[in-house]
Simulated assay, not measured.
Amino acid sequence: MVRASLPGEWTEWLEAGTTVTLTSRGWPEGAKREGTLVSMLPSLEENGLQAQLLIAVNDPLALETDGPALRLGDVLRASFQPAVQEQLISLPSAALRPGDVTWRVDEENRLRRTPVTLAYRGEDDALIRDGLETGQQVVTAGLAQPREGQLVRIRRPNDTPAQAGNEPGDES
């Protein structure tokens, strides 16, 4: 069994039987183990209400399994696919500005400051519950001093800086 803690409000994303992927910085690159969430127990800790997760791992010492052995005291990272019950929009965390704000580009290629309601914010990704609609374009990088209504040029991933300014029909 592996025991993990996470903030109590995140338990709405989990249910018993969920598959959990375990990784560790101390393991070789790409090494991982799979487990199953057995139960969630609320507990009070110094930093507030935490949920204690119990994760079952078959053959924890890797005697009959490929992969690293789980040792007492190992520091592990547990990741899981949540049981999402609503439509959420996923963005890179870098797209969020202080105050849970994003900058999106409207139909006229102008910046619009857009407050959002977060369902989750992690190191790499954020899940947006409210404030954005599917299909809207959100700025993820490249804004030094954005202003509401500022005209912007959208650069696609394969564009070079010189190509970004050459729209079809531009005569320079």
Rank of each mutant, 00 (worst) to 15 (best):
A95S: 15
S93H: 06
N58D: 15
P115C: 07
S43Y: 07
S39V: 03
R155Y: 03
D59C: 08
T140E: 13
I128Y: 02
L72K: 12
G149N: 12
L111V: 06
V152T: 03
A164D: 06
I55N: 09
S39W: 03
P42E: 07
P146N: 09
T134M: 11
Y120P: 00
L70Q: 03
D106K: 06
M1S: 13
N47T: 14
S79Y: 00
D130E: 14
S172Y: 14
G149P: 09
G131Y: 08
N166A: 11
E45S: 13
W13I: 04
L151H: 08
P42I: 03
P60Q: 10
Q52T: 12
S39F: 06
V152Q: 04
S24D: 07
N109Q: 11
E133M: 02
P98H: 00
E123I: 01
E15T: 06
E15D: 15
N166L: 15
W27C: 03
V138A: 10
M1W: 09
L132G: 04
T21P: 05
T21R: 15
E108G: 02
E167N: 13
G165M: 08
Q85K: 15
M40C: 02
P68N: 02
L37G: 03
Y120D: 02
I55E: 08
R71V: 01
S90T: 12
L118C: 07
E148V: 00
D66K: 11
R3T: 15
E29K: 12
S93D: 07
K32M: 13
V101G: 05
L143P: 01
W13A: 11
R71I: 01
A78C: 10
S93I: 04
L132M: 05
A164I: 02
N166R: 13
E171A: 11
N166E: 10
R112E: 14
E148G: 00
T102D: 11
A62I: 02
V75D: 13
Q150V: 01
T36C: 05
R104V: 11
I55S: 10
R147M: 00
G131S: 11
V116T: 01
G122S: 02
P168Y: 03
G142K: 05
R77P: 03
F80S: 08
G30R: 05
G17R: 06
I154E: 12
T23G: 05
T21K: 15
L37W: 01
A16M: 12
A4S: 15
Q85L: 14
W103E: 01
R147P: 00
Q150K: 07
E34P: 01
E29G: 10
L91W: 02
M1C: 09
E15R: 10
S90F: 09
A56N: 13
